[in-house]
């Protein structure tokens, strides 16, 4: 459900969910690698949507 909320503004690639048991260290490593790769594909600065703008005045 959370995912769909993000669809109304933020790119889907910025939120991930997963389900890993405490015995699945290999799956953990897999998922971390996959998510990191995916996030690296996103445009770093420009697309950083939700972020406080420093107030200048």
């Amino acid at each position: 459900m959370k995912n769909f909320l993000e669809h109304t503004g933020i790119e889907p690639g910025r939120l991930h969910f997963s389900w890993i048991s405490s015995a699945e260290s290999t799956k953990f490593v897999d998922v971390v690698t996959k998510i990191t790769d995916e996030v690296k594909m996103l445009d770093p600065a420009n697309k950083k949507y939700v972020k406080t703008e420093p107030k200048v005045d």
């Binding site: 959370k2 909320l5 939700v50 406080t52 703008e53």
Partner: peptide
């Protein structure tokens, strides 16, 4: 009144 904060409020309220 920062746009981000306003948006956070509305998204959470809706959720």
């Amino acid at each position: 009144q920062d746009p981000t904060d306003v948006k956070t409020f509305h998204l959470l309220r809706a959720y």
